[in-house]
Design a protein around this nucleic acid. Structure first.
Lengths: 205, 205
DNA sequence: TCTACCTTTGACCGATTAGTTAAACCAAAT
DNA sequence: ATTTGGTTTAACTAATCGGTCAAAGGTAGA
């Protein structure tokens, strides 16, 4: 019995749904595709997740939880600010490398006009920038970073530098790295030091 | 007769298709939606663009051409490197502000598994990083920028800082700006100076 | 007016798809 | 052995969607 056969049906469905929804989008994904990928009958999907919407919501919840919920927790440690930033980038990139499908999955759905599920989950989530803004303010008072640094700009810039290379892979790999997959992978792996240095140059006094 | 009624049918269809494909994705967009949005009969879509694939390809070609084809032309001017960079960012942000739908439209489709049209168009395009790499190399030799600057990193970082805030709007606006649309718009407008300064700090010796 | 050509329309078709249903399967408890 | 409960399946349905077609509308030139 292989590893995949050991896990239960519900889990198999969710894994298959993650893949298919990401590859095809919500509308493009067909319940039959997901069933085939999970190695089960289509009716079983409706047995475990009553509708396509429900199944999609389950996948979205997983993805959004991974990327957003614990985004600012690192900044509650006792490390100095620069170490915290470095650990944040490292942590975030690590999640991205393990789940490169997540950012495009989330952004793709959030950019749709009618997204009942996605908008709800964002409001419900406890993602809050205020505590991070407080920390930045304290660093400014301590004189460790530039006086005009704004927490909002800082976090957006960091996320941009982390996430963009992942979602733009299908255009970066051919145009910048001449379709050499290894070159792209290597680039992503070395990205942490690059980002940390940029951020350091951004904020240091 | 309103402005929209004056333009010809083909143009009306293309405009409607841009909107609907962006809002719903290729699979999610229905030919009937596009027809309704254009204020015409569904059969007319097939009269002007024989199939959904053809119509989608037309929209993709427009979007990709806008964002990618003239991406490196600014660096062929006689201005000094820093001025070129500043003008590049300004130019790119201006296109993004006028066509905020484009990045998500392109990336959304490129990240799908089966995208015959999109991948073709990238290969056909004359987007080439080599000339930009040459310019960067010369600046290094002149001693105007850091010795370890890599053209590939530089252009990806600039694009990330320009594009990410646009595609992540539906998450930035509620989480960072408490759903205040004006605050977000203001942020985007002031983005040029922010990016230019980051890039300056990134590369200056 | 007649003709020729381009444009527009409504009715229709075949294929696909999400979801239903009733029956079969299977393991554990009685 | 029988029952009970959760699990799995094949067959089916109703609705939707991309695309076709034949006919009608409109317009400019002969």
């Amino acid at each position: 019995m292989s590893d995949k056969e050991k896990i239960n049906t519900e889990e198999k469905i969710l894994d298959a749904a993650k893949e298919v929804f990401t590859e095809e989008g919500k509308a493009g994904a067909k319940m039959q595709m997901i069933a085939d990928r999970a190695g089960i009958n289509k009716s079983l999907l409706h047995y475990y997740y009553r509708s396509k919407d429900k199944l999609f919501a389950a996948v979205f919840k997983f993805a959004f939880g991974k990327m957003a919920s614990k985004i600012f927790t690192i900044f509650k440690s006792d490390d100095d600010f620069f170490t915290q930033l470095e650990r944040f980038v490292e942590n975030y990139l690590s999640i991205l490398l393990k789940n490169p499908f997540i950012p495009m999955f989330i952004l793709g759905e959030l950019n749709k006009k009618h997204n009942n599920i996605a908008a709800e989950l964002i409001l419900k989530s406890d993602v809050n920038i205020d505590s991070f803004a407080d920390i930045v303010q304290k660093e400014i008072q301590k004189g460790t970073i530039k006086k005009d640094i704004q927490a909002k700009n800082l976090i957006i810039n960091i996320l941009a530098l982390c996430i963009f290379p992942v979602i733009a892979k299908p255009i970066i790999e051919p145009v910048v790295f001449n379709n050499k997959t290894d070159a792209y992978k290597n680039y992503i792996k070395n990205r942490k030091d690059e980002i940390v240095e940029i951020v350091y140059n951004m904020i240091k006094v």
